[in-house]
Design a protein around this nucleic acid. Structure first.
Lengths: 136, 136
DNA sequence: CTTGCACTTCAAGTCGACTTGAAGTCAAGT
DNA sequence: ACTTGACTTCAAGTCGACTTGAAGTGCAAG
């Protein structure tokens, strides 16, 4: 039973999709995009092992952390745990800096929004707040 | 000199673009998108009054605050100061809530990133942090 | 008169992460 | 045999805010 070893308990794309909460189209897209290895086919249809589910969950996890699919591909592509971790730290550090910046500018925006909310200018373009803000 | 009254000190699209720091293509796009009224033409070429500069600066200001062009169009389209301010407050409040949410989730992401940075898992998919995070 | 630049219009391209549509195939159930 | 539903492929569409390209026009200086 060579096949039993190879495709034991193999899942269809629909089952995988339901399990991880993705559309089947997204999973096919990930295959095209190189985030998943080309799936084995049985009668032309994709069959997946359980580890694909982990991989997809890892993809979603990383996405939630703000990584692009191409970042994620780089991480997944790296075979060795050592270099992979190195790469991961590098990406994480960059992302942390990015988020710091995002939060900082979001807070600035909040301040301006709160002031502008109750600004008493007659027209927006004659607003002193606006004049002030625009000169930065 | 009837024209002197109408187009006194009128600016070309290039001058306006340099003044506000936009590409001419963006200004044409804004006209198409209804953010600017159709500009007067002299010999087929657009001519602008100074107030267009204010309007464009207002557009950029609002963009910096996170508003989409269609939000901005709504604000600019509203003729009366009263309703306009009402609309502005409404949009500002919505945006403030949005940003609150953004900052909150950004901070959550930061926490996870910091933990994951020094996570000692051998493979990412066997990471306890990941397992924990995925169950949410 | 010609060069050259800034301008014109309109259509199409860009980016990322998918989704949608059309046309066809596979396998299970009735 | 037929239907149903899940699957297949490939191309094209989506969103927002523009940019780019091609082909042509207006006008001032040399």
């Amino acid at each position: 039973m060579a096949t039993a070893i190879v495709d034991g308990a193999a899942l269809t794309i629909g089952e995988v999709a339901r399990t991880v909460g993705l559309r089947t189209s997204a999973i096919r897209y990930y295959e095209d995009a190189g985030l998943l290895p080309r799936a084995a086919r049985v009668g032309g249809k994709r069959r997946y092992q359980r580890d694909t589910i982990d991989r997809l969950l890892l993809v979603r996890f990383s996405q939630r952390l703000g990584f692009s699919l191409s970042d994620i591909r780089r991480i997944l592509a790296d075979p060795t745990g050592r270099r992979r971790k190195q790469l991961w730290r590098q990406l994480v550090d960059a992302k942390l800096g990015e988020i710091d910046g995002l939060i900082t500018s979001a807070r600035r925006v909040q301040r301006v929004l709160r002031e502008s909310r109750d600004c008493d200018c007659v027209t927006l373009s004659s607003c002193r707040l606006l004049q002030q803000e625009l000169s930065r």
